[in-house]
Each structure stands twice: as C-alpha cells, then as structure tokens.
C-alpha cells in the first residue's frame, strides 16, 4: 500500500508539468486537502499554472479556483462563500473584504498589471492609441466601473482626456476580451497579460496613458479560511520566486 502511494505521488509530481518544481519549494509537511482560491479573472492562466505547480510541490493538496471579476468575488466572500485565499486585481476590491473584517492580517501586493488595447489579430482598424477609439465606426468593449479593469480604464481615459462610448460594459476582463475574440467589437481595454494569453487571436496595442493607471494586485488569507495552513502555503508560493516566475512569464510586472 505504501509503495502504491509512493508511485501515485511520483506520478502526480511528474504530471506537474514545469521543470522548475522538482526541488523542495517549501516544507510540505502540514499542507494537505483542498485549497479554495478566489482570484481575479485576469489571473486565470497564471494561477491555473501556479495551482498545478503548488499541487506538485505539496502532494495531497488540491487547489480549486473561482475566477471572476474582483468585485463579484468580494461580494461572494462578504456573503460567506467558503474561500481560503482572495487575490484581487485592485486594492479597492480587496478593501471591500478586509474592511468587512474578512481578511486575516493585511493583504500583500504580489504583482502589478497595466492596460493595453486588445484588437483583432492584424489590427484591421489600425488602432494606435486611445484617440482612435472615439470614432463611430469603432465598437469598444469596456469593463464595468466596479471591476478593476473598468476602474483602470476610466482612469486612463480621463488621463488621456478621451471620451469613449462603449457598446457594452462587461463584468470581468475575460468577458471584454471574449467580445474581441468573437469579432463582435473592434477593441477592448484589457490587461497586458490578457492580450498576452490570447495572443493567437488578438494583438495588444500599448498606449502611453496606461502607465498612469497601473493596478496593484493584493492577495490575502481569508479569516474564515476552512484550510488555513493550505491558504498560507499558497500565498507563500505565489510570493516565492517560483510563483513570481510564472506571473512574470505571463506578462505581469513585479510589485
């Protein structure tokens, strides 16, 4: 039986995927069971990878994610959703949770991200900057203001003194990106990392004003975490060199 378990675990580690998880990332003695992570939609690809690496480094643990707009996640957490970790795409939505007394300690900023203009592959409308999005012939999707990508877009647009009438206000950044991928809109303001992750379908057009609307991403262990040890280990992993390497590769900036 013990031998069988060892083989199974070796298989699990082997399936972990990336080569850099072979070593002992962290002491894994106490970390088992399910870790539930509520994370901003823009973290979908990188956190999914980090989750796999984490499971490989901590045999016996499983990480499940709930990816959505940070404001929706904050609402769910404050309504009592059983989550261990919250990773938000903006400090405002994190404050919604910590101000309600649902964070365990203070949140730590783990990455930063900034906006680009996502356009269909080949940039058919020749978009070079925010000013090109004002024309009637250009359909633009933005995130709703409550969501971090929407708040950042508002900030960047007012910094650029450009007024856009979007055709839709989406509930998270991936929904805005999807409208570009489907070809239903000509442009959307999304994070650099989202354009990066969808590079086969979209091009990301950098614009100067996005530097004035950089989002800090905070992460926190939740006060009512069902798996506190697992939550702490996951946050530590995200902040570790291995976690940061995955995030940097996805296009995030170091805090």
């Amino acid at each position: 039986m013990a031998g069988l378990t060892a083989v199974a675990l070796a298989g699990l580690v082997g399936c972990g995927g990336t080569d850099d998880t072979g070593g002992n990332a962290a002491p894994s003695a106490e970390v088992t069971g399910a870790v539930t992570v509520f994370a901003a939609a823009s973290l979908t690809e990188s956190f999914t990878q980090i989750g796999k690496d984490f499971e490989a480094a901590h045999p016996g643990s499983t990480v499940t994610f709930n990816f959505a707009g940070s404001s929706a996640l904050a609402t769910q957490i404050n309504q009592g959703a059983p989550a261990d970790v919250f990773a938000s795409a903006a400090p405002t939505n994190m404050a919604t949770v910590t101000d309600a007394g649902n964070g365990d300690g203070t949140a730590t900023t783990f990455v930063r991200n900034q906006l680009v203009i996502a356009v269909p592959k080949g940039n058919p409308k020749g978009v070079k900057g925010l000013a090109d999005l004002t024309g009637a012939g250009v359909k633009v999707a933005l995130c709703a203001e409550q969501v971090p990508c929407g708040a950042a877009a508002k900030k960047a647009l007012s910094a650029a003194n450009v007024a856009i009438t979007p055709v839709t206000l989406e509930q998270d950044v991936k929904a805005a990106l999807a409208k570009v991928r489907l070809g239903e809109v000509d442009a959307a303001l999304v994070y650099r990392t989202d354009a990066h992750a969808a590079a086969s379908d979209v091009d990301g057009v950098e614009f100067a004003e996005s530097a004035g609307a950089i989002n800090d991403y905070p992460i926190v262990v939740l006060k009512n975490a069902p798996n506190r040890a697992g939550a702490q280990a996951f946050v530590a992993y995200v902040l570790s060199d291995k976690g940061q390497a995955v995030l940097t590769a996805a296009g995030f900036q170091a805090p």
Binding site: S71, T75, N78, E145, Q146
Partner: peptide
C-alpha cells in the same frame, strides 16, 4: 441593460 442585468451588475458591484 434590462432589469435583470441591472440587478446582476448592482449585486456584483457589492451594492446589495
């Protein structure tokens, strides 16, 4: 934005 969509967006925004 019909009423059901407005309810959803308001709820998502934390305005219970």
């Amino acid at each position: 934005q019909t009423m059901p969509l407005a309810v959803y967006q308001t709820m998502e925004g934390g305005d219970l």
